[in-house]
Nucleic acid binder design. Structure first.
Lengths: 198, 198
DNA sequence: TTCCAAAATGCCACAGTGTGGCGTTTGCTC
DNA sequence: GAGCAAACGCCACACTGTGGCATTTTGGAA
């Protein structure tokens, strides 16, 4: 599961409920009417919250649409933090992602493909996602801070690139069980990609 | 040189002059006062053009700030289109960029470092740049359309990642002559990065 | 030189996003 | 039930980006 904490107080539960309603409604609504062509007010009206409350929960319109992506990387950073780092780092990055994928719940596997399609259709969302990936990469590098800064930085870039490639291959079907296999295949292709001939 | 065409007609020269004034003023003004905290009106007032004319020349506030980046990739795509593709593709990508760097003029080498600093300070600009890189990558892939789609896609991702790493290493000094050497060094590190151990 | 058509510009109004102030409601605690 | 703090809704505002329309400027041709 991503996060299954049960907040004791009623107030926090209520707050979480509207937050979740905003997330769910956003993905479906933007999916139906398009992200760019759907005013934020349409979402607020449907969930029945004021703009003020929305912006207390999310930084931007893009933020709420990309919640599934952020959740994934949050879990990834958590998994990566607790994983044993030995052997080839590329394998560590990969197995951390495989573990992460196992932790995500069914709700996430429903929302994530929808989010990917939103991203594919909206340059603004794509830019936001890439920027978020960059932040995650910086965070990973911070955790590993070693001497081979350049090689480490490159490897992180390569892995995230492989992940995005895997998502592109997964996008048409989006069968949850196939994603790990696709990611493995893409990662095993990395070496031969570097020596590709024209 | 990037583009040194002399438009015959006075009208086009005038238009290019205001366009160039917008570009130059934007980089310096945003550099002084920050991209996010500088209203577009400040730029328009300084160059003495209306908002309407600005948006006929540029798609957005980010667009004008990132002109140097777009110019680079425009030249790169042009160089890459005419280059001989033989041997390791990674070398082809690298030499195309080296040729591109030789083609850029002094004005560009003055604006480009300023632009890089703007990007480093503004997440919005960073997102726009990454998105633009993605479009360039898609264009390169389109030119090469072969059978090994996955390996090709990965290699392109890796090269652009290496380029961004090189820029990060170059950013502190920004000595124009050092960039090719840095890029060569980063590219030669790609192989060992993949086999990095924890 | 003069006149016309096209292009470029400026002005105005509007939609949409995001922020801050401020009063009001709601839930927590005693 | 009373007091308190958190969350909320309403309002006004700044900024970005778009479209309509009148005006000026320029290129070209009579």
């Amino acid at each position: 599961m991503t996060i299954s904490e049960q907040p004791a107080t009623l107030r926090e539960r209520k707050k979480l409920r509207t937050r979740q309603a905003l997330i769910d409604t956003a993905v479906t609504l933007f999916g139906e009417r398009g992200f760019d062509s759907t005013p934020l007010d349409a979402l607020l009206e449907q969930v029945e919250v004021s703009r003020r409350t929305f912006f207390r929960n999310f930084r931007s319109k893009e933020d709420v649409a990309l919640t599934a992506v952020k959740q994934l990387w949050d879990v990834y950073l958590d998994v990566f933090d607790g994983i044993e780092k030995s052997g080839p780092l590329a394998d560590v990055f990969l197995s951390a992602m495989l573990t992460t994928l196992e932790r995500m719940d069914e709700g996430w596997y429903r929302r994530f493909p929808l989010t990917l399609r939103l991203i594919a259709d909206s340059p603004a969302l794509d830019g936001h996602t890439l920027r978020h990936c960059a932040e995650v990469q910086a965070e990973i590098a911070r955790q590993l801070d070693e001497q081979n800064r350049l090689e480490l930085r490159l490897l992180i870039e390569f892995f995230v690139a492989a992940w995005r490639c895997a998502l592109d291959e997964w996008l048409p079907d989006c069968t949850p069980g196939e994603l790990p296999a696709i990611l493995r295949r893409v990662c095993s292709t990395m070496n031969s990609a570097l020596s590709l001939e024209a």
